[in-house]
């Protein structure tokens, strides 16, 4: 499905990602954990195409997409949720969804229902953050991606809302491949098939969730 080989990324002498390789199988749900500054978001941005690696390659379905732009990767089946919600703030919820579904009304209704969004004629600038989070997830799901990248999908909405949102993510179709960054360990273990722990630009643990706990202790010093 997704294969990263020998990725390196640096900004002016500071190494952010170091010689990182990773394989994700179709339908797998991979959660990436790690301390702040470990390079988790940079890794997601490399996969989405927002950053270009200095070295290494990215393969999607055995096709090299390292040089592809963000829009062409999106069309190739990568959906993207943002750490801070990224929405069209001058529009209503409906206009956001309609744009994402390319005007397909049936798909739009389905998407709204899936993300639990109601009262679609509200302007995005005036909705609460929980709703904005759901809309961000809905936009990531639009166009039926095969690979979904989520960067702390429940951050900033409080414990109750976060559990709801994670239930939503857990209920996504099993054939959708997930790569999710999550800080909250309980939420992470709730959805993960597999866990990778990053530290200083490298993957320091990669394996089954139950095996991850001892490794987490070592990384976080808890």
């Amino acid at each position: 499905m997704l294969e990263l080989s020998g990725l390196s990324l640096g900004f002016g002498g500071i190494s952010v990602i170091r010689d990182l390789s990773l394989r994700v199988a179709p339908g797998e749900r991979l959660v990436i954990l790690g301390p702040n500054g470990a390079g988790k978001t940079s890794l997601l941005r490399l996969i989405a195409g927002e950053l270009r690696p200095q070295q290494g390659n990215i393969w999607l379905h055995r096709r090299d997409i390292t040089r592809d732009t963000v829009p062409s990767r999106a069309r190739a089946g990568i959906g993207r949720g943002f750490q801070q919600t990224s929405l069209f703030t001058g529009m209503t919820l409906r206009e956001n969804l309609s744009l994402a579904c390319d005007g397909d009304a049936a798909a739009m209704e389905q998407l709204a229902a899936r993300a639990g969004l109601t009262d679609l004629d509200r302007p995005v600038a005036k909705v609460d953050y929980g709703t904005a989070r759901r809309l961000d997830l809905a936009l990531a799901l639009a166009g039926n991606p095969r690979l979904l990248l989520l960067d702390e999908p429940a951050s900033g909405i409080g414990p109750g809302g976060a559990v709801d949102l994670h239930a939503l993510i857990a209920a996504l179709p099993r054939d959708l491949t997930l790569v999710v960054i999550e800080h909250d360990l309980d939420l992470a273990f709730a959805i993960a098939d597999r866990i990778a722990i990053m530290d200083r630009g490298r993957i320091v643990f990669d394996g089954a969730p139950e095996a991850a706990r001892p490794a987490l202790k070592a990384t976080y010093d808890v």
């Binding site: 732009t69 829009p71 999106a74 069209f88 206009e95 744009l99």
Partner: peptide
């Protein structure tokens, strides 16, 4: 038109538009 919606979307939030497959 659909084009017009995309045109405004690209102005509103180019990063999100790109992530939706729209080339700003």
């Amino acid at each position: 038109s659909r084009f017009g919606q995309r045109f405004e979307a690209v102005h509103d939030n180019p990063d999100r538009a790109a992530a939706l497959g729209i080339a700003p």
